[in-house]
Structures are given as C-alpha cells and as structure tokens.
C-alpha cells in the first residue's frame, strides 16, 4: 500500500436516489399515469374482494327483476335473467386480471427466455427462433388464439395458454433486439475476460440491462391480453356460462341493445377503462425508463 490517501481520486461526482424511487416519483409526477395506477388499484381490490364487495351474488337469477334499467338498487341495471350487472362486472374483474397476468406471465417467461437465447447465441439458434416467431407474427393475433383454442378446446385455462402463446413472439423480439446491443457492450466483454460463464453473463449482465423495454411491453401487453380474453369470451371460447366475464357480458348484451343498453355498455366501459389504465401506465414507464428523456436537460448542461 502506498502513502497516497484513499481519497486520491476524489468523491463520487453525483448522488442518486435508488432506481425504483426515481421510477415511482416519475410515475407519480405524471397525472395520467397516476390515474392508471389508481384504476389498477381499484381493479385489484375488486378482484381480491369480489363477491364480498358485490351487493348481490353474481350468478343469482331474479327473473321478476329482469332487464331493469340502472337504479339505486341496481346501479348498472339487471340482465335478461335479473342478475345484477354491477355485481357481475365487479366479480369479472378477477377473471380479466387473472387472464391478463397469467397469460402475460406465460408470454413474458417464454418470450424473454427465447429472446435471450436467440440474441445471446446468435447464429442458427437465432435464425430458428426468429423464423418461428415470424410465422406466429404473420397470423392476426385473435385468429391465432382461436386456432389454438380450437385444438385445446374452449375454457378459461386454455384461453390463458392461447393468449400466452400469441403474445410470446413480441417479448421474444423485443428481448432479442435489446440483447443484441447489450451483448456488444464492453462490460460484457469485461466479464467474459474474467472467466464468467454464459449463465452468469446472461443473468447478471445482459438481463438486467434489457429489462426496461420488457417492463414497458408487459404493461401494454396486459391491456391487449385483457382485450383478447374479452374477445374470446365474446365468441364463447373463453369463460363459460354462467360465470361472468366482461367479454361474455358484452356478447350477451348484444342481443338486448335496443331494450337494455346497460347490459353491454357497463362491461364495455370496464374493458375500456382497464385497457386505458394499462396503456397510460406503460407510456409513463417508457418515459421514466428512457434515460435520454429522464436526464436530457441535466446532461446537456454538463457536457461542456
């Protein structure tokens, strides 16, 4: 050890709050994103409490009360069997969120894994994976989901798998694209020069640096997955009667557009608000995670 002091090189240039706090404060500062966050919170509450929050059991028919317009007793009215639309919309939030999270979970796990392998190893593995995802991309999403369900049979679990498969290529592609650029960064070479294994390189050095676009895509995909579930249930391929789902309720309401507009409008509004919330959140995350936007002003001031 030499006589030189430990502060020979001086103190760090700047201090920074932890990443998640920066992210959270960025989202909080954005009013639209805050709206998304609040909606998401309400949805989670509805999904968890469900029946306990609903004024009526969602599947309880009350034929004399059928097709009542919104009133104090039935804020969203009743359907053709006299079931309370508000209770059904509330309880259906669970299905929507479940399908959203599980389906997106499937595509996230599969897509990121495939994207990491394709991007990191390149060559024929990359070609093989990317050709398959290109093929999946060539189908319209909903048609592909219908085709998969035709094979697996209708039902909520299969719908999740189908939606999961449909959205896998997007994650694979986004991950691969980011991996390709991160793979070339010097710190990956540096880790390699230290003798790091591929597993270590991928998990510690590549993956944490490709997360930003994946997080953004996740929140946007959640919106799409919920829409897909609604569409599949609308077609009778997802949630089976009598259980409520926004898509099913929309389908059932279709026959009563003239007599009972509330049967379709309220589930439709629920879908709209949920999808909007996830999209707003996704946009805010995109802005917050993009360092070029985050510190544009600061960096301009300092690069003299």
């Amino acid at each position: 050890m030499s006589a030189e002091t430990a502060t020979e090189a001086g103190a760090p240039v700047e201090e920074h709050a932890p990443r998640w706090r920066v992210l959270l404060s960025a989202v909080m500062a954005n009013r639209l994103a805050l709206f998304g966050l609040v909606v998401l919170g309400l949805l989670v509450m509805a999904a968890v409490l469900g029946e306990r929050l609903a004024p009526y059991p969602p599947n309880a028919a009350d034929v004399p009360e059928r097709l009542r317009p919104p009133s104090l007793r039935h804020p969203f009215g009743t359907d053709e069997l006299g079931r309370d639309v508000f209770s059904r919309v509330l309880v259906a939030a669970r299905v929507s969120l479940q399908v959203g999270f599980i389906a997106v979970g499937i595509s996230l796990a599969a897509g990121v894994l495939l994207g990491l392998i394709a991007g990191f190893y390149g060559r024929w593995i990359d070609d093989a994976i990317m050709r398959v995802t290109d093929m999946l991309f060539a189908f319209p999403a909903i048609l592909l989901a219908i085709a998969i369900l035709a094979v697996l049979g209708p039902g909520i679990a299969n719908a999740m798998i189908a939606i999961g498969i449909v959205y896998t290529p997007i994650f694979a592609r986004i991950t691969r694209g980011s991996v390709l650029s991160v793979r070339e960064r010097v710190f990956v070479t540096a880790a390699r020069s230290l003798g790091a294994s591929d597993l270590r390189l991928v998990t510690l050095h590549v993956l944490p640096n490709v997360l930003a676009p994946i997080i953004v895509q996740t929140s946007i995909s959640l919106a799409f997955a919920i829409l897909s579930e609604a569409a599949l249930s609308f077609l009778g391929l997802g949630v089976q009667p009598p259980d409520p789902s926004w898509g099913r309720m929309l389908a059932e309401g279709r026959g009563f557009v003239q007599q009972a507009w509330w049967m379709g409008v309220f589930p439709g509004a629920a879908i709209f608000v949920t999808v909007l919330a996830f999209n707003l959140l996704g946009d805010a995350l995109r802005d917050a995670l993009d360092p070029r936007q985050r510190s544009a002003i600061e960096s301009r001031g300092l690069t003299a």
């Binding site: 010097v186 710190f187 070479t189 540096a190 020069s193 230290l194 640096n209």
Partner: peptide, 13 residues
C-alpha cells in the same frame, strides 16, 4: 486480466 478503454462502457451500470 484486461483493462478497457471506455470507463463508461466497461462497468455494468
């Protein structure tokens, strides 16, 4: 061992 040129790129952020 190796020391790299770019001190900004050679450390995992």
């Amino acid at each position: 061992a190796m020391i790299f040129q770019d001190p900004y790129g050679s450390l995992n952020p």
